[in-house]
Amino acid sequence: MNGDKVTLYENGDIVESFSLSVDSPNSQSCTFDFSDKSDDTYSYCVGLSNSTGFTRSDAIEVTVI
């Protein structure tokens, strides 16, 4: 079953969330745009939810230099 909402977390805080088109069993995709980030290391993960629950990805670290 597809997710109907995706949420982006940066360092544990929600920075963006939006609805997805549900078209099970086809795959889904989305993009997040970043700009003007200060030099630092950031931790990102995404959450996906639907009527049956919520799941969150493992975090990745991104270093901006």
Rank of each mutant, 00 (worst) to 15 (best):
M1E: 13
M1R: 08
N2W: 12
N2E: 15
N2H: 14
N2T: 15
G3P: 13
D4L: 03
D4Q: 11
K5V: 15
K5I: 15
T7P: 04
T7A: 09
L8P: 01
Y9K: 06
Y9R: 01
Y9P: 01
E10V: 11
N11Y: 00
N11F: 03
G12S: 10
D13F: 04
D13C: 00
D13Y: 03
I14T: 15
I14P: 00
V15E: 03
E16D: 14
E16M: 06
E16Y: 06
S17T: 14
S19G: 10
S19Q: 10
V22L: 06
D23H: 03
D23P: 00
S24R: 03
P25S: 01
P25R: 00
N26P: 03
S27C: 04
Q28R: 01
Q28A: 06
Q28S: 05
C30F: 13
C30W: 11
C30N: 08
C30V: 03
T31K: 11
F32K: 02
D33I: 04
D33Q: 08
F34Q: 02
F34T: 03
F34R: 02
S35D: 08
S35E: 08
D36S: 13
D36L: 09
D36A: 13
K37R: 11
S38I: 05
S38Y: 00
D40E: 13
T41A: 11
Y42L: 06
Y42P: 10
C45S: 14
V46D: 05
V46K: 00
G47K: 03
G47C: 09
L48D: 10
S49K: 11
S49Y: 04
N50Y: 09
N50I: 11
S51G: 15
S51Q: 13
S51P: 09
G53A: 12
G53I: 12
F54C: 08
F54W: 13
T55W: 09
T55C: 13
T55Y: 12
R56C: 10
S57H: 01
S57G: 05
S57I: 01
D58C: 02
D58G: 04
A59M: 03
A59T: 12
A59R: 06
I60Y: 03
I60Q: 11
I60G: 07
E61T: 13
E61S: 14
V62G: 02
V62K: 06
T63G: 07
V64G: 02
I65K: 04
I65C: 00
